[in-house]
């Protein structure tokens, strides 16, 4: 009886620490999930005379990938994006975040351009609108222009296979208000 109380207290503390330490402090849950993607109209990287708006993609399921040539983790992610574009999985639009245009173009020329197109977010304003705090970040956006999933950090093959591709396929099939199945929700959680 005497040792029950300390033991109980100890287990409560262990429980809290267990949960607390297993969380990733770098991963800030995005409040933007299931909210309309913030509108932007930006000049295109390859031809700054032309602009692109997120509204141009209404009716399609697509991914907005935030990248920069100075971003080391983007290099890690890049080969997978190139593979994805070869397999023509779904359109990926690049948001070139706070980058020098020449550096960005050189990178795409050198390592391959997986993007349908990239847009220039020179001062990072659109990045702030999308709650970007670390590059790379990717947003899956549905036909209605609603953000359905956010990948923080480099997209990995496992997350692509288990979450992103099934999610995109379901969203593509859906008409009107698209509901996502529990399986996919679980895989993406």
């Amino acid at each position: 009886m005497r040792f029950l109380l300390p033991l109980g207290l100890f287990s409560v503390i262990v429980g809290f620490l267990w949960v607390g330490l297993s969380l990733n402090p770098q991963e800030v849950p995005s409040p933007l999930i299931d909210k309309p993607a913030p509108d932007f109209t930006l000049p295109q990287l390859h031809d700054p005379q032309q602009t692109f708006s997120n509204k141009d993609m209404l009716g399609k399921v697509w991914m907005l990938n935030v990248w920069a040539s100075w971003c080391v983790a983007c290099r890690q992610e890049h080969p997978l994006l190139v593979q994805m574009s070869r397999a023509k999985l779904f359109p990926v639009v690049g948001l070139n975040y706070k980058d020098e245009r020449a550096d960005a173009l050189r990178w795409l020329q050198h390592d391959g351009d997986p993007y349908l197109l990239s847009v220039i977010d020179k001062n990072g304003k659109v990045g702030i609108d999308y709650g970007v705090y670390g590059v790379p970040e990717s947003f899956v956006i549905d036909k209605q222009g609603v953000i359905r999933h956010k990948v923080i950090g480099p997209l990995g093959p496992a997350e692509l296979q288990n979450c992103v591709i099934p999610l995109v396929r379901e969203l593509e099939k859906a008409t009107g208000e698209s509901q996502v199945s529990e399986e996919v929700k679980k895989a993406c959680a």
């Binding site: 800030v28 933007l32 702030i128």
Partner: peptide
């Protein structure tokens, strides 16, 4: 800011 980055 909270709308974009959450309560955090």
């Amino acid at each position: 800011m909270v709308e974009r980055y959450g309560d955090f």
